[in-house]
Amino acid sequence: MTAPTLNGTRYPQPVDALMPAARKLTTELGSLPSRNRLMREFHIGAPKADDLRTRLTAEHEKQTRTEQIRTAMILRGALLPLDNALTEMTEPAAVPLDYAEPIGPNPAPAPVAPEHTPPADPTPATPPQITPAEQVEQVTAVGHPDTPTPPAPVRPAVVWPVVLLALPAFVAIWSGWVGLGGLTGFGVVHPLPGIWDSFSINSAITLPIGVETYGAYALYVWLSGRVPAPARRFAKWSALGSLAVGALGQIAYHLLEAAGVTSAPWWITTAVACLPVAVLGMGAALAHLVRTHD
Protein backbone atom coordinates (compact mmCIF):
# COMPACT_ATOMS: atom_id res chain seq x y z
CA MET A 1 0.00 0.00 0.00
CA THR A 2 1.37 3.43 -0.98
CA ALA A 3 1.74 5.89 1.90
CA PRO A 4 -0.45 9.03 1.55
CA THR A 5 1.18 12.38 0.74
CA LEU A 6 0.49 15.80 2.23
CA ASN A 7 -3.05 16.33 0.91
CA GLY A 8 -4.13 12.72 1.47
CA THR A 9 -3.72 11.52 -2.09
CA ARG A 10 -1.52 8.58 -3.05
CA TYR A 11 -0.34 10.10 -6.31
CA PRO A 12 3.12 11.78 -6.41
CA GLN A 13 2.90 15.54 -6.21
CA PRO A 14 5.06 18.05 -8.13
CA VAL A 15 7.78 20.05 -6.44
CA ASP A 16 5.77 23.29 -6.66
CA ALA A 17 3.03 21.71 -4.54
CA LEU A 18 5.56 20.57 -1.94
CA MET A 19 7.29 23.97 -1.59
CA PRO A 20 4.96 25.46 1.11
CA ALA A 21 5.35 22.42 3.35
CA ALA A 22 9.12 22.42 2.72
CA ARG A 23 9.35 26.11 3.71
CA LYS A 24 7.45 25.37 6.92
CA LEU A 25 9.78 22.48 7.71
CA THR A 26 12.81 24.75 7.11
CA THR A 27 11.39 27.34 9.52
CA GLU A 28 10.78 24.70 12.20
CA LEU A 29 14.28 23.25 11.86
CA GLY A 30 16.02 26.63 11.64
CA SER A 31 18.20 25.36 8.78
CA LEU A 32 17.90 23.69 5.41
CA PRO A 33 16.72 20.07 5.74
CA SER A 34 18.85 17.36 4.21
CA ARG A 35 17.87 15.30 1.21
CA ASN A 36 17.16 12.25 3.37
CA ARG A 37 14.92 14.30 5.65
CA LEU A 38 12.91 15.56 2.67
CA MET A 39 12.57 12.05 1.26
CA ARG A 40 11.41 10.70 4.63
CA GLU A 41 9.08 13.63 5.39
CA PHE A 42 7.29 13.87 2.03
CA HIS A 43 7.71 10.26 0.80
CA ILE A 44 9.46 11.30 -2.40
CA GLY A 45 12.40 9.98 -4.38
CA ALA A 46 16.01 11.23 -4.43
CA PRO A 47 15.73 13.29 -7.70
CA LYS A 48 12.65 15.15 -6.48
CA ALA A 49 14.25 15.68 -3.04
CA ASP A 50 17.36 17.15 -4.70
CA ASP A 51 15.20 19.52 -6.79
CA LEU A 52 13.22 20.55 -3.73
CA ARG A 53 16.37 21.23 -1.68
CA THR A 54 17.95 23.20 -4.57
CA ARG A 55 14.92 25.52 -4.65
CA LEU A 56 14.97 25.92 -0.87
CA THR A 57 18.68 26.81 -1.05
CA ALA A 58 18.07 29.42 -3.76
CA GLU A 59 15.24 31.02 -1.76
CA HIS A 60 17.39 31.05 1.39
CA GLU A 61 20.27 32.75 -0.42
CA LYS A 62 17.92 35.29 -2.00
CA GLN A 63 16.37 36.07 1.38
CA THR A 64 19.82 36.44 2.95
CA ARG A 65 20.93 38.91 0.26
CA THR A 66 17.72 40.90 0.70
CA GLU A 67 18.27 41.17 4.45
CA GLN A 68 21.87 42.29 3.93
CA ILE A 69 20.79 45.02 1.50
CA ARG A 70 18.06 46.17 3.89
CA THR A 71 20.51 46.29 6.81
CA ALA A 72 22.96 48.34 4.74
CA MET A 73 20.21 50.79 3.76
CA ILE A 74 19.12 51.20 7.39
CA LEU A 75 22.71 51.81 8.47
CA ARG A 76 23.19 54.32 5.66
CA GLY A 77 20.03 56.15 6.75
CA ALA A 78 21.34 56.32 10.32
CA LEU A 79 24.70 57.76 9.20
CA LEU A 80 23.17 60.32 6.80
CA PRO A 81 22.49 63.01 9.49
CA LEU A 82 26.09 62.75 10.66
CA ASP A 83 27.33 63.22 7.08
CA ASN A 84 25.13 66.31 6.67
CA ALA A 85 26.47 67.80 9.91
CA LEU A 86 30.06 67.26 8.84
CA THR A 87 29.31 68.85 5.46
CA GLU A 88 27.86 71.97 7.12
CA MET A 89 30.92 72.26 9.39
CA THR A 90 33.29 72.14 6.43
CA GLU A 91 31.36 74.63 4.23
CA PRO A 92 32.97 78.12 3.84
CA ALA A 93 31.60 81.09 5.77
CA ALA A 94 28.93 83.19 4.09
CA VAL A 95 30.14 86.14 2.03
CA PRO A 96 29.13 89.54 3.61
CA LEU A 97 26.39 91.40 1.66
CA ASP A 98 26.83 94.87 0.21
CA TYR A 99 23.37 96.07 1.34
CA ALA A 100 21.93 96.37 4.84
CA GLU A 101 20.28 93.26 6.18
CA PRO A 102 16.77 93.60 7.64
CA ILE A 103 16.69 93.87 11.42
CA GLY A 104 14.62 91.27 13.12
CA PRO A 105 14.77 88.61 15.77
CA ASN A 106 17.61 86.18 15.65
CA PRO A 107 16.67 82.95 13.96
CA ALA A 108 16.41 79.89 16.05
CA PRO A 109 19.63 77.84 16.10
CA ALA A 110 19.62 74.90 13.78
CA PRO A 111 19.36 71.57 15.56
CA VAL A 112 22.61 69.72 15.73
CA ALA A 113 22.44 66.06 14.87
CA PRO A 114 23.66 63.86 17.71
CA GLU A 115 26.99 62.27 17.18
CA HIS A 116 26.62 58.76 16.00
CA THR A 117 28.63 56.21 17.91
CA PRO A 118 28.80 52.78 16.30
CA PRO A 119 27.82 49.98 18.67
CA ALA A 120 30.72 48.31 20.36
CA ASP A 121 31.44 44.78 19.35
CA PRO A 122 30.63 42.59 22.37
CA THR A 123 33.19 40.01 21.32
CA PRO A 124 36.75 41.43 21.04
CA ALA A 125 38.60 40.52 17.89
CA THR A 126 40.99 37.67 18.43
CA PRO A 127 44.29 38.02 16.57
CA PRO A 128 44.87 35.19 14.09
CA GLN A 129 47.07 32.45 15.38
CA ILE A 130 50.17 31.88 13.24
CA THR A 131 51.85 28.52 13.45
CA PRO A 132 55.68 28.38 13.71
CA ALA A 133 55.88 26.96 10.18
CA GLU A 134 53.84 29.88 8.74
CA GLN A 135 55.91 32.38 10.76
CA VAL A 136 59.16 30.96 9.38
CA GLU A 137 57.68 31.06 5.87
CA GLN A 138 56.65 34.72 6.27
CA VAL A 139 60.04 35.74 7.63
CA THR A 140 61.76 33.90 4.80
CA ALA A 141 59.54 35.30 2.05
CA VAL A 142 59.65 38.96 3.17
CA GLY A 143 62.97 40.77 3.07
CA HIS A 144 64.56 44.08 2.28
CA PRO A 145 64.31 44.87 -1.44
CA ASP A 146 67.97 45.83 -1.63
CA THR A 147 69.19 42.64 0.02
CA PRO A 148 70.57 40.22 -2.59
CA THR A 149 69.37 36.64 -2.50
CA PRO A 150 72.11 34.40 -1.09
CA PRO A 151 73.37 31.92 -3.66
CA ALA A 152 72.54 28.29 -3.22
CA PRO A 153 75.33 26.25 -1.64
CA VAL A 154 77.47 24.52 -4.24
CA ARG A 155 78.43 20.94 -3.49
CA PRO A 156 82.19 20.44 -3.88
CA ALA A 157 83.45 17.91 -6.38
CA VAL A 158 84.52 14.52 -5.08
CA VAL A 159 88.25 13.73 -4.97
CA TRP A 160 88.37 9.95 -4.67
CA PRO A 161 88.30 9.35 -8.48
CA VAL A 162 91.49 11.40 -8.78
CA VAL A 163 93.17 9.29 -6.10
CA LEU A 164 92.09 6.13 -7.90
CA LEU A 165 93.50 7.40 -11.19
CA ALA A 166 96.75 8.51 -9.54
CA LEU A 167 97.60 5.09 -8.07
CA PRO A 168 98.81 3.51 -11.35
CA ALA A 169 100.77 6.66 -12.20
CA PHE A 170 102.39 6.61 -8.75
CA VAL A 171 103.54 2.99 -9.23
CA ALA A 172 105.03 3.73 -12.67
CA ILE A 173 106.77 6.94 -11.55
CA TRP A 174 108.14 5.32 -8.40
CA SER A 175 109.60 2.34 -10.26
CA GLY A 176 111.06 4.59 -12.98
CA TRP A 177 112.86 6.88 -10.54
CA VAL A 178 114.14 3.96 -8.45
CA GLY A 179 115.43 2.23 -11.59
CA LEU A 180 117.09 5.42 -12.85
CA GLY A 181 118.65 5.92 -9.44
CA GLY A 182 120.12 2.43 -9.63
CA LEU A 183 121.65 3.22 -13.05
CA THR A 184 123.18 6.49 -11.78
CA GLY A 185 124.85 5.22 -8.61
CA PHE A 186 122.02 5.45 -6.07
CA GLY A 187 121.64 2.30 -3.99
CA VAL A 188 121.63 0.82 -0.50
CA VAL A 189 123.47 2.91 2.09
CA HIS A 190 123.92 2.77 5.90
CA PRO A 191 123.04 6.30 7.12
CA LEU A 192 123.91 5.59 10.79
CA PRO A 193 127.30 3.89 10.91
CA GLY A 194 128.56 3.21 14.41
CA ILE A 195 125.09 4.06 15.80
CA TRP A 196 122.85 1.59 14.04
CA ASP A 197 124.94 -0.51 11.71
CA SER A 198 122.11 -2.81 10.71
CA PHE A 199 119.94 0.09 9.56
CA SER A 200 120.08 0.54 5.76
CA ILE A 201 118.05 2.45 3.18
CA ASN A 202 117.99 2.56 -0.62
CA SER A 203 118.81 6.14 -1.56
CA ALA A 204 117.07 5.72 -4.93
CA ILE A 205 113.70 6.37 -3.25
CA THR A 206 114.77 9.95 -2.52
CA LEU A 207 114.29 10.82 -6.20
CA PRO A 208 110.52 10.15 -6.51
CA ILE A 209 109.85 11.45 -3.01
CA GLY A 210 111.73 14.69 -3.58
CA VAL A 211 110.95 15.60 -7.20
CA GLU A 212 107.33 14.43 -7.48
CA THR A 213 106.26 15.51 -4.00
CA TYR A 214 107.66 18.98 -4.50
CA GLY A 215 105.96 19.24 -7.91
CA ALA A 216 102.58 18.29 -6.45
CA TYR A 217 102.90 20.73 -3.53
CA ALA A 218 104.10 23.60 -5.73
CA LEU A 219 101.14 22.96 -8.06
CA TYR A 220 98.78 23.16 -5.08
CA VAL A 221 100.31 26.46 -3.89
CA TRP A 222 100.03 27.94 -7.39
CA LEU A 223 96.37 27.00 -7.89
CA SER A 224 95.18 27.73 -4.35
CA GLY A 225 95.25 31.53 -4.77
CA ARG A 226 95.86 32.03 -1.03
CA VAL A 227 99.50 33.12 -1.15
CA PRO A 228 101.23 36.36 -2.17
CA ALA A 229 101.88 37.03 -5.85
CA PRO A 230 105.66 36.28 -5.69
CA ALA A 231 104.98 32.91 -4.05
CA ARG A 232 102.37 32.03 -6.68
CA ARG A 233 104.70 33.00 -9.50
CA PHE A 234 107.59 30.96 -8.08
CA ALA A 235 105.31 27.99 -7.34
CA LYS A 236 103.95 28.08 -10.90
CA TRP A 237 107.31 27.91 -12.67
CA SER A 238 108.92 25.54 -10.19
CA ALA A 239 105.92 23.16 -10.41
CA LEU A 240 106.06 23.16 -14.20
CA GLY A 241 109.84 22.64 -14.06
CA SER A 242 109.50 19.74 -11.61
CA LEU A 243 106.92 18.03 -13.79
CA ALA A 244 109.15 18.51 -16.84
CA VAL A 245 112.19 17.08 -15.01
CA GLY A 246 110.09 14.14 -13.85
CA ALA A 247 108.98 13.44 -17.42
CA LEU A 248 112.60 13.64 -18.66
CA GLY A 249 113.72 11.25 -15.91
CA GLN A 250 111.08 8.70 -16.93
CA ILE A 251 112.10 9.02 -20.59
CA ALA A 252 115.78 8.56 -19.74
CA TYR A 253 115.15 5.47 -17.62
CA HIS A 254 113.01 3.70 -20.20
CA LEU A 255 115.42 4.51 -23.04
CA LEU A 256 118.39 3.19 -21.04
CA GLU A 257 116.43 0.12 -19.96
CA ALA A 258 115.31 -0.60 -23.50
CA ALA A 259 118.90 -0.24 -24.79
CA GLY A 260 120.19 -2.66 -22.13
CA VAL A 261 122.47 -0.07 -20.53
CA THR A 262 123.57 -1.03 -17.05
CA SER A 263 125.24 2.30 -16.21
CA ALA A 264 123.91 5.72 -17.24
CA PRO A 265 126.16 8.19 -19.10
CA TRP A 266 128.01 10.75 -17.04
CA TRP A 267 125.79 13.70 -18.01
CA ILE A 268 122.62 11.84 -16.95
CA THR A 269 124.31 10.81 -13.72
CA THR A 270 125.35 14.43 -13.09
CA ALA A 271 121.81 15.75 -13.66
CA VAL A 272 120.21 13.10 -11.46
CA ALA A 273 122.74 13.66 -8.66
CA CYS A 274 121.86 17.39 -8.57
CA LEU A 275 118.11 16.78 -8.20
CA PRO A 276 118.02 16.33 -4.37
CA VAL A 277 119.98 19.57 -3.90
CA ALA A 278 117.71 21.44 -6.34
CA VAL A 279 114.57 20.16 -4.59
CA LEU A 280 115.94 21.25 -1.21
CA GLY A 281 116.65 24.76 -2.49
CA MET A 282 113.28 25.20 -4.24
CA GLY A 283 111.39 23.87 -1.20
CA ALA A 284 113.17 26.28 1.16
CA ALA A 285 112.54 29.23 -1.21
CA LEU A 286 108.85 28.37 -1.61
CA ALA A 287 108.36 28.02 2.14
CA HIS A 288 109.94 31.45 2.66
CA LEU A 289 107.78 33.09 -0.02
CA VAL A 290 104.56 31.52 1.28
CA ARG A 291 105.14 32.97 4.77
CA THR A 292 106.18 36.40 3.52
CA HIS A 293 103.42 39.03 3.11
CA ASP A 294 105.59 41.94 2.06
Rank of each mutant, 00 (worst) to 15 (best):
104 G>T: 02
98 D>G: 13
122 P>G: 05
124 P>S: 03
125 A>W: 08
119 P>H: 07
112 V>C: 02
105 P>D: 08
107 P>D: 12
111 P>E: 13
95 V>L: 13
122 P>W: 06
96 P>N: 03
96 P>M: 05
129 Q>H: 12
125 A>S: 05
114 P>G: 05
115 E>I: 15
101 E>Q: 14
95 V>K: 13
103 I>L: 06
95 V>T: 15
98 D>E: 13
118 P>T: 01
117 T>C: 00
95 V>F: 06
108 A>D: 05
109 P>F: 01
100 A>F: 06
116 H>W: 15
129 Q>W: 10
130 I>E: 02
113 A>T: 11
125 A>F: 12
96 P>H: 02
104 G>C: 01
113 A>V: 08
112 V>W: 01
105 P>Q: 05
122 P>E: 11
106 N>I: 07
94 A>C: 01
95 V>N: 05
112 V>P: 01
127 P>F: 11
114 P>E: 07
97 L>Q: 06
125 A>P: 09
100 A>R: 11
130 I>C: 00
106 N>R: 14
117 T>N: 01
123 T>P: 00
114 P>Y: 05
95 V>Q: 12
124 P>G: 11
120 A>K: 03
96 P>Y: 02
121 D>N: 04
101 E>G: 09
103 I>Q: 10
128 P>E: 13
105 P>G: 03
95 V>A: 12
107 P>W: 09
98 D>W: 10
122 P>N: 05
111 P>A: 08
109 P>I: 02
122 P>S: 05
110 A>V: 14
102 P>Y: 01
118 P>S: 02
123 T>L: 14
113 A>F: 14
112 V>I: 12
100 A>K: 07
116 H>M: 07
97 L>D: 07
123 T>E: 12
103 I>G: 04
113 A>W: 07
129 Q>R: 13
102 P>C: 00
109 P>Y: 02
106 N>D: 15
117 T>L: 02
116 H>P: 09
125 A>Q: 07
115 E>P: 10
110 A>G: 11
126 T>Y: 04
126 T>M: 13
104 G>F: 01
120 A>V: 08
117 T>F: 02
111 P>C: 07
101 E>W: 11
103 I>M: 07
98 D>M: 14
123 T>W: 06
115 E>F: 14
112 V>R: 09
108 A>R: 06
115 E>D: 15
111 P>I: 08
128 P>N: 07
120 A>G: 05
109 P>M: 04
122 P>V: 10
107 P>G: 10
105 P>N: 05
122 P>D: 09
116 H>A: 14
114 P>W: 04
104 G>V: 01
125 A>R: 12
102 P>E: 03
122 P>K: 03
121 D>G: 00
130 I>P: 00
101 E>N: 11
100 A>H: 04
109 P>W: 02
118 P>G: 01
102 P>Q: 03
129 Q>V: 13
122 P>R: 03
117 T>G: 00
109 P>R: 06
129 Q>P: 03
129 Q>N: 12
124 P>V: 08
115 E>R: 15
113 A>S: 13
109 P>A: 11
119 P>G: 12
99 Y>A: 13
107 P>K: 10
106 N>F: 06
98 D>N: 09
119 P>M: 10
119 P>L: 12
113 A>R: 04
116 H>C: 07
107 P>Q: 11
126 T>E: 13
113 A>P: 15
96 P>T: 03
100 A>V: 10
